[in-house]
């Protein structure tokens, strides 16, 4: 599904060059649920941005679904991102002046679906996260957990094969975090590949595999065997 080889990413200012990722290599298989941990500033978010085609690496090779994405134009990368990748952010990133229906509509608009198909997908994804009755509410009228569920619904509406979650429970209390985590596990069971960045070791253990990033490199590739119920307990 995702294959990175010797990925490098550096940011340059007038005086300093910072290496966010150095010879970063990783492979994520179809249907996997992978957690990514590491200290702050280790390069987790940079990895996620590159994986989500929001940033381009300085060097190395990135294959997404077997396709080399390094030389794609912005339009091609955007289309690929829209069709294959779903994002879930720590801060939810819902558009505040759009109601839930219109928020979930955003990626579907860029996909070019007709109105009927968009409505079908929006209603279905709202139903999946249990918020059908709140379609006309604004994000500010929802709790944090509900907002994150809307964000998940928005990510799911396009039926992506690859879900990237950047600390999806970071802004939630433990109960909400558990609900969101269960939802992600449920989504993974449908076959969606998930890569989740988290600081929470318990959540990381619930993934099938954990990757630790330190100083822009993969330092540990550990298989996580623990069952979700066991981890929460």
């Amino acid at each position: 599904m995702l294959k990175m080889q010797n990925i490098r990413k550096s940011y340059r200012t007038d005086t300093i060059e910072t290496h966010a990722l150095r010879d970063f290599s990783l492979e994520v298989n179809e249907g996997e649920f992978v957690s990514v941990t590491g200290p702050s500033g280790s390069g987790k978010t940079t990895f996620l941005n590159i994986a989500g085609l929001l940033e381009t690496p300085t060097g190395g090779q990135y294959l997404l679904d077997g396709q080399e994405v390094g030389n794609l134009s912005d339009s091609e990368r955007s289309r690929l991102r829209n069709e294959k990748i779903g994002f879930i952010f720590q801060g939810f990133n819902l558009i505040p002046d759009l109601n839930l229906f219109d928020n979930i509509d955003v990626p579907l608009r860029y996909r070019g679906f007709n109105a009927k198909e968009r409505r079908r997908r929006i209603e279905k994804s709202l139903e999946q996260v249990g918020l059908s009755a709140r379609a006309k509410h604004l994000p500010a009228q929802l709790s944090g957990g509900q907002q994150q569920r809307v964000a998940i619904a928005r990510a799911l509406a396009g039926e992506p094969r690859f879900l990237l979650a950047d600390e999806p429970t970071g802004n939630l209390d433990s109960l909400m975090a558990r609900q969101v985590m269960e939802l992600l596990e449920f989504i993974n069971e449908w076959g969606t590949t998930i890569v989740m960045v988290t600081h929470d070791p318990e959540l990381a253990r619930r993934a099938q595999r954990n990757i630790q990033i330190v100083d822009g490199q993969v330092s540990d590739l550990r298989q996580t065997i623990a069952q979700p119920e066991a981890a929460i307990a």
Partner: peptide, 16 residues
């Protein structure tokens, strides 16, 4: 700009 960032993440190209 934050809204534009979200739209970009959701599949909007620079041209869009």
């Amino acid at each position: 700009a934050p809204e534009a960032g979200v739209r970009r993440a959701l599949g909007a190209s620079r041209n869009a």
